[in-house]
Nucleic acid binder design. Sequence first.
DNA 1: GTGAAAGCGCTAACAT
DNA 2: ATGTTAGCGCTTTCAC
Lengths: 343, 343
Amino acid sequence: MTTPAVPAQRSQVTRKDVARYAGVSTAVVSYVVNGGPKNVAPATEAKVQEAIRLLGYRPNAAARALKLGSSETIGLVIPDNSNPFFSLLAHAVEDAAAELGYALVLTNSAGNLAKERRNIRNLAARQVDGVVLSSVLMEPDLADLEAAEIPAVLLNHSADAPGFNSVGVDLAAGAKSAVEHLISHGHTNIALAMGTNTGNYFDGREQGWLQALAEAGLPEGSIVRSPFTRDGGYASGRRLLAAASRPTAIFASSDMQAVGILRAIHEAGLSIPDDIAVASFDGSAESEYCWPPLTTVQQPAQAMAEAAVRALLQTPRGHEPEHLIFPTELLVRRSCGCEKPFA
Amino acid sequence: MTTPAVPAQRSQVTRKDVARYAGVSTAVVSYVVNGGPKNVAPATEAKVQEAIRLLGYRPNAAARALKLGSSETIGLVIPDNSNPFFSLLAHAVEDAAAELGYALVLTNSAGNLAKERRNIRNLAARQVDGVVLSSVLMEPDLADLEAAEIPAVLLNHSADAPGFNSVGVDLAAGAKSAVEHLISHGHTNIALAMGTNTGNYFDGREQGWLQALAEAGLPEGSIVRSPFTRDGGYASGRRLLAAASRPTAIFASSDMQAVGILRAIHEAGLSIPDDIAVASFDGSAESEYCWPPLTTVQQPAQAMAEAAVRALLQTPRGHEPEHLIFPTELLVRRSCGCEKPFA
DNA sequence: GTGAAAGCGCTAACAT
DNA sequence: ATGTTAGCGCTTTCAC
């Protein structure tokens, strides 16, 4: 091999080529491409545009990023993009970012701290302009985030994180509304199928469930804990069904878990909601299409994602961090015992 | 405002600072950071590592990308990351890319050609090293992809695309196996709930369905078409139920649609599989947890994503394009009439 | 309205 | 084993 290794350069045509072809300076090409900061005579502009078109010039984003110190890219760290709740969030974040001209680098951390940390580091090295972190861990690696000095916002985070912007929902209020609804159906033995991985922090959903029970003068129901997955919910469901005093209603901390619980109940040959009523949390699309459709507490995922991106990109540096808490909405369907007439 | 606008530079500490602090040249720092291309004396390396640690140095990826002509980033264009099938694909692509040191820029195109085109252009401008395109459109914007001169691979694409790498499944064989299974249950009136957006191209799933019917000497069943969504399937289901000669079995071209069909059947007060059996295509997680669990043709999404990324990143330039077709596997569950014993 | 040129942080060929 | 340095493509200040 005597031929010099040609780097796999693709975008061979540069600003310089365009300038030469159009008979102007490279600066003018920049002005045209960026619409500023200087004005360009219409005739010159036309020449440049024509040259760009003819040559098939495409600006090199890396060079721009180097010069500007901004890649116009944000990073998203989520536990698992194949979990419907997070994939919806990811989609919404992508849309919101694209709206502002930012691209989205997606990373999955498998709910695992080491991977989450690696992803954050990697994003930091890639000069992203900000990171949206949606961790299941209640103690995500904020230190790393701080060290990277990258603006960050915690999405799907309902506890205040000192020093960080965060956006989440009012977990307790949402859970409480669902449990109250279950109570209104006459249930007195309402179990909680809680998710795990929330650290030693007292989850708002658990709180809301307790509170609704207490306010109604009802005894505490049983709690089972499992991961925020269909499998986890299935396991929880089976445990609950096998319990000595089987609950007549179950509140699940996520739709995923509720779907697993539904399956466990079906398999046991019991009827939903007649034998056991179910309600859950999230308001995913799947909750509407499982059988029976789930009564669930809907999180405004889209609005939250938009708020997170705005907080990230449009908050002036050094600004006091904001903790945005969105309200939830109880979606009443059949799994709680409410019969919905069909169209 | 008389203070000069300080650019929002974050990564203030550069290779030069490290070099100065460690008392070496910038080249040596590079060698240490990159593990080459030259060797560095252990003592020197230690000094440099220490300086890096102390100074909190993080390499600037933009500069590296500019120099190397590679951003070590790939782009993914999918219709909708909130569709479980695509979010699974996206996750798998992310994992495969990360494995090779590449980050993933995610873009959703909403199954819309204009947006798909915009996303491709945007990715091209961002100097991604390759694009994985997973379009629902059967005629994605290959011209744009070609113009950008970016290596690309079509994922979830089962028809040969001349000049492009592609990876997909054998749609016809998969569909055929499912329909044959339905036939083995004694069904003779098997409808097809097909997806739309596949252009004028004759979808393999339709082909497989027809073929299975023909080979069994059965009459052609009815076809209804709707988008690849739960809502679409629901609409198809209702149409099928209202038909004069109601089918006793339905094959759906995607799990999403099947889930909608399930709901329509439930709402009609009919039993699955006794009144109507259902089988579908994809093998998503949801298919296992709906009720009854769906008999479905599983696509090896993970393997396909890995193959796509490898084809993208590890195929020498100028190499003859490959068309990889993966086999599917029929997952037999209860919706077809097979009773699975419970553990 | 237009142009010249410095320099963003990094890599690697070439010199020592 | 280590150092010097050109230059990747771009933006923008400063001169004209």
